[in-house]
Write a protein that binds this DNA or RNA. Structure first.
Lengths: 218, 218
DNA sequence: AATATATTCTACTGGTTAATGGAATGACGA
DNA sequence: TCGTCATTCCATTAACCAGTAGAATATATT
């Protein structure tokens, strides 16, 4: 019927703009980093292991899709997600990917700390235990990210400082370590180190973005 | 540190496979159609206004990303979404797109029935009114789609039959028409027709997929 | 004035993609 | 066996994309 087609094509094309942003591995990595808080271009480039120029190009795509905002602070330009729902979408996409793609499931298994005792769902009971002090929830990300947002009752010891600051952690209680999310390897490294040193450590694969989505859905 | 990069690249690449699927307008349209229930290749091709061969190619992409399943029924091959969460992702992507992209917002306004009285959020009260019979919720999609799933208390009159079956509808109550979702134009056409014929009609932009997501999030 | 940060422009390579068409093949029903 | 439905293989066009690089530019700090 009449000019229906043109209108429809236009609508789906616009939605596809968002999809395109999430179709590049490096852009996904940048989005995940931005889920941890605002960051400068240089920082993003370093964390994602790409050149500043390429980072700039990817950020441009994100900007043109209105998914990030920029703010100048002195010499640096800081990027942040334009809305929480961007983080939500990232979480939902990688969750669906893990549900559907066996290849991804297998790749993930490689990074899971071998004696596989990672806590999954049990959010409520983890909080309860953390509140009582029965377990220590440990945030091993850089401290700026911890300051931006962290899990309830979490303590911050960045991975880099962990070896020196082991004394701050108790040996008689479980330590639940987390980092940026399921594809960040810092918590896995932390757990490995802790176990070597005789601690009882557990790897929590969720980051703040995943936690937020999960706790909203009850 | 060590082979971290290779692993990370692998992980994000897998997630990007899902993103890629949602980066093509035609594929998005096919996903939306599949949100209405299982459909044959030929039907999908017709509805999306593309050739069977191209449809087949796009469906192949969906299949390789494990987002759809196929089933042979006689001469035809029927496709369906592999999981409800695929529909959820479609809803979340187009919702985010509408939140962020002004171009999409403007394009959407064109299809909104001019005297703009579309009911938004008020799910609870709509159900209540429909239960009491104060309003008629009208599903104008093909009847197979209605049979697969429909909104609570909805009645089915496919758009094609609407003109002949106008007598079934009351003139003293509001009629809330909906179709496949915000980018489907059938409900808008229905509202136009109904108003011309002296009915009090309202366009509900949500389809079953959007309704499901919204009612789950309370 | 010199420096650091970040973007932009141009240009190139290699690879991928959507869409179309022709031809062949498989799978099924009548 | 024939026709229908659907996929596949092949080839093509045109467009796009990631990544890299050189050079130029803008902005702000010192």
């Amino acid at each position: 019927m009449k000019g229906t087609r043109k209108i429809k094509d236009l609508l789906y094309e616009q939605v596809a703009r968002i999809g395109k942003v999430f179709s590049s591995p490096k852009r996904l990595e940048l989005v995940e980093l931005l889920c941890q808080g605002e960051k400068s271009v240089e920082t993003l480039a370093q964390e994602a292991s790409i050149s500043v120029k390429l980072t700039s190009a990817h950020l441009r795509e994100l900007r043109m899709a209105q998914l990030v905002q920029t703010e100048r602070q002195g010499k640096n330009i800081y990027y942040r997600l334009a809305d929480k729902s961007v983080a939500d979408l990232w979480v939902q996409i990688h969750t669906l990917a893990e549900e559907r793609l066996i290849e991804l499931q297998m790749a993930v298994q490689k990074i899971v700390t071998q004696p596989n005792d990672l806590v999954p769902s049990d959010r409520e009971s983890l909080i309860k235990a953390a509140r009582k002090g029965e377990v220590v929830v440990l945030d091993v990300r850089p401290s700026e990210e911890y300051l931006t947002a962290h899990l309830p009752f979490a303590r911050s010891i960045p991975l880099e400082e962990l070896r020196q600051r082991l004394g701050e952690l108790p040996k008689d209680r479980s330590i639940v370590a987390y980092c940026r999310g399921p594809y960040c390897l810092m918590a896995a490294d932390a757990v490995e180190l802790l176990r070597q040193e005789g601690y009882s450590a557990i790897h929590l694969r969720e980051g703040v973005a995943e936690w937020a989505v999960a706790s909203r859905q009850v």
